[in-house]
Design a protein around this nucleic acid. Sequence first.
DNA 1: TATGAATGAGCCTTCATTCAT
DNA 2: AATGAATGAAGGCTCATTCAT
Lengths: 212, 212, 212, 212
Amino acid sequence: MNTDDKNKEQAILEAAEQTFLEKGFEASKTTQIAARAGVTHAMLHYYYRTKENLFNMVFDQKIRLLKDSLLTLLENPEMPFLERIRIGMGAHFDFIVENPQLPRFVINELLFKPKRLALVESTLNRVARPLIRKAQQEIDLEAARGAIRSIDAVTLLLDIASLNVFLFFALPLIRLFAIPEGMSEKEFLEMRKRENAEIIMCRLKKQPDSNF
Amino acid sequence: MNTDDKNKEQAILEAAEQTFLEKGFEASKTTQIAARAGVTHAMLHYYYRTKENLFNMVFDQKIRLLKDSLLTLLENPEMPFLERIRIGMGAHFDFIVENPQLPRFVINELLFKPKRLALVESTLNRVARPLIRKAQQEIDLEAARGAIRSIDAVTLLLDIASLNVFLFFALPLIRLFAIPEGMSEKEFLEMRKRENAEIIMCRLKKQPDSNF
Amino acid sequence: MNTDDKNKEQAILEAAEQTFLEKGFEASKTTQIAARAGVTHAMLHYYYRTKENLFNMVFDQKIRLLKDSLLTLLENPEMPFLERIRIGMGAHFDFIVENPQLPRFVINELLFKPKRLALVESTLNRVARPLIRKAQQEIDLEAARGAIRSIDAVTLLLDIASLNVFLFFALPLIRLFAIPEGMSEKEFLEMRKRENAEIIMCRLKKQPDSNF
Amino acid sequence: MNTDDKNKEQAILEAAEQTFLEKGFEASKTTQIAARAGVTHAMLHYYYRTKENLFNMVFDQKIRLLKDSLLTLLENPEMPFLERIRIGMGAHFDFIVENPQLPRFVINELLFKPKRLALVESTLNRVARPLIRKAQQEIDLEAARGAIRSIDAVTLLLDIASLNVFLFFALPLIRLFAIPEGMSEKEFLEMRKRENAEIIMCRLKKQPDSNF
DNA sequence: TATGAATGAGCCTTCATTCAT
DNA sequence: AATGAATGAAGGCTCATTCAT
């Protein structure tokens, strides 16, 4: 297999990735993917046999990307806890900026397709549970020494994910009328990044009863 | 037209609604919708002519539902500002509990389909802009009298929506391993509702610089 | 059956007639005919059972009309032969003006549908052959007494029909660019009527050898 | 692509041509065309995409054929005017003998389909008008020098077309009972060819007033 | 490896016709 | 008599996949 072959195979994969991310499995057509990759339709099936198979390649790569990025985010550099959260949130946000179609893809093609979700369930249990347990331990430690309010780890992670991810679902709407005059989209996103971190900081910060 | 007849027409609409909400336009098949409704395939076309048309009926109803609920949420009962936010957030949350598939439907079929988004753009501009302006005025008033921190209205709304909506995207995942032992899903959602309100209250509350 | 009923039945027949004449059997739809007649689709089938049957009613009526008109044309008023030809041609021409869609209908639905043609073959033989024989006898008589050139009866009839009928096939084209400036379509048709008669007269007129 | 492949594509086109010529667009079914061509139904769509498209291929070719033949007919060999008319009429007649279904096809699918006629209107104006003008000039010249009676060019062309074309519409009828005993169809057509030319010659010939 | 050709299955839709009331 | 509802059959078309070369 020479470079050219690899290129073709890769071109198909990239065209498939773009198409699947944009439209999902059903609305994507192999003919169109092949055309986008600049190869014959038969070629696509020659390399990847079935649409399902091609989709799985893309899917697995995206899941791997997601897993890797999450693991990276949860790495433990020497840094105060809150600072690490703040940095981690920023990195998460930036990751989505780089992969803006990924959240929708994951939700539509993984979370809301029971069959596919079942396939990754065991992996999730194996990988996610320990991570969350570890995170909880650290949070408890911080709370115990009075650095932050006590909080459930899942709750915190969900808060962060909600703020960081949902923005990108709302973006097409926001573009229509909610970006302030004179502000570029990039600036808007920067502002949101700060806002999101701010909210989480505020949430974690030790404070008097929120009795108002 | 007796009850049975109406039932058939209605059954098709309901089957279509479920199917479209679950799978989106492309992945939904009229044959399958008809089967689900317990009618012949031709019957579906007899009542609704085309798949597109049937979809639009469902779509329009959902958009109307969304619009009505938003307007209700933004109504102005006699109540302190923060309390109104809290109540409104809860109502919003409850609305999604009742319509858990709606957010994904709106995102996939409206926000990420440029043609469809373009169709409602003018309506959005007409309806949403004034509401936001009004909200901003009120916020500014509250901030001026020192009741809350100053905040951009869009930012606040986006914060609220993010927290309330994204939860339901993550739910299939959460069900797998993140609901604490002994807690029902209902209890979990109740907890999240409080958490979301808490975060927003915290965000709005007047406080010293978050200099930690 | 009261007047109203008859009206409905008649309305269907008329709508069918128009539609079948315009578009032929296959391109005509019973739904459209019913709509055109202002009755429900089921009504049409209630009265006429099948599309085929409805078509036959229209068809038979048109064939009868055609036959009657031809018989009228070939009637034998007391008049010199050539004059009778001229008058008959004009009447034929006028008949087509009144039934401009009939020739195309007959050609498409009768002459070029072998099955249908077979159905009327025996009738034709019975009716047309004697008429032609009689015409030939008269022609031969006239020729014998030197009033006209000798001619085959079928040839003459075909000449006449060609000139009178084909004009109406060419009319859509003629309308586009061949009607002289300042001449109305009606005037154009009058001119053609005279021209056609002129040609036939010329053809029949006793003359020296056409050796040029 | 070997001979067989081309044959298949070609076979479809030929089957389509025959079917469309026989029945027109609406009454022709792609399934039937495919069967007639001896290929699967999907194959037809593989090569020609849509029925409309396949029809257009046939249609355009027929229009081209028609145009070319007309231009050939109007070519200007060195020959006396009347002789040229006679030769041209014969060629026209022979062209229809070779393409006996063409006139009906043109009338039904072009002249009586306003949309299609509109499509070619500009071409017609561009091509036909000058030709007619030129023909008129020549006629006027001949008339001026006393060689023929004066006549409108459109009138003459219509006379010729009527006689040559209509015959083929009447042919199914003529076959049934109007071909003289002992005469073959071929001989009959030869006779008609002469008759048609004779009539036009007679029409053009300088003569005393047709006052009989 | 590469590809044009080929196909079966399935989808959306229309339509003539029948049925129940 | 009248009609809304219902349906089987068929039509046009797409698409993932396979085959022959």
